[in-house]
Design a binder for these strands. Sequence first.
DNA 1: CCAACATAGTCTGTCCAGCAGAACATCTGT
DNA 2: ACAGATGTTCTGCTGGACAGACTATGTTGG
Lengths: 171, 171
Amino acid sequence: MAIERCHELVEGDALRRDFGWALGVVFRAYLKAGNEATGTLPGGPRGHQVLEAATRQPPVSQSVIAQEIGCDRTVMTYLLDDLEREGLLTRRPDPADRRSRQVVATDKGVERLERLRELIMRAQDFVLQDLDEADRQTLRCLMQRSALRLDSLDPTAPCNVVRDIAAADQA
Amino acid sequence: MAIERCHELVEGDALRRDFGWALGVVFRAYLKAGNEATGTLPGGPRGHQVLEAATRQPPVSQSVIAQEIGCDRTVMTYLLDDLEREGLLTRRPDPADRRSRQVVATDKGVERLERLRELIMRAQDFVLQDLDEADRQTLRCLMQRSALRLDSLDPTAPCNVVRDIAAADQA
DNA sequence: CCAACATAGTCTGTCCAGCAGAACATCTGT
DNA sequence: ACAGATGTTCTGCTGGACAGACTATGTTGG
């Protein structure tokens, strides 16, 4: 029960103190555990996220889902093909804009999703296995806040991380 | 100054409450900002991590670096080719095991690394822009703890996330 | 109304990276 | 000495990101 939060990085060398390194390790572990957890689901953890998006009301279009889960629209085409072939969701024309297709989970998809959530939860617990429940909650919340903020930014705009420093980066 | 920690996810739909979703959004934002920040560095943020690993004492082998930063050993081959061609590091045979090559940063590589750290820091601040400094520290620390734990696991072993539930996953 | 432009989805091709497998050099244990 | 394990490199294969083209449809300005 580590009630007090830890606020500094102590262990390890320069690499292990890098936030980007930690992010990569945790992300890859999530992909690995998520792929185990989702089993035969087309797209693995990504397929799960599509299925979550397909339960939204009102229904959302393919391009909205692609943007939300951060994948390319050309990949979304065949990912939805696979999920539709399994009968987990359907594409139907948006009555208000016939260019667009609404992605809607079928009953079978919703049922599968309920079982998937349990399995995905286990994958996430695997990733956060070194934290107690309070720390997991804190981490989940801080990550969600960061993600919500980033999600609201224009995905086509540059991050402008370099700015004035860029000029000094000649070598 | 959000002194009190937040412990529950409140905003958004099912997708936005998913930890895997948040992880993906933050990771992709880090890659995007990191690629901007590292500019012409071969491998982008990944090249930076290799360079960090190349400053370790005692020197480490290619396969150790590949395992630490989570990339394939075959990719490491040409990634090191690129970094070596830029004169940022060298490969030299390990005197204790001539199969193995020690990866060592050159003076030029160390100098480049010092400028890179500043830029990478900015990329990380971009990713965590919605958090104040205390929350960033907390998040960095919790991620590092999770990553250190995952890093110590056998990378070839399955996560065993499914176990008994697997049998019930027929559909 | 119509022409110009924008947008949603699909398809093609390219590039990068993960993965499997093989080849080769070298090390280790018997 | 010999068999097996390990480190590096190379060759295919595959999945996904990205750019570009194309079609169908929607939107806007003349």
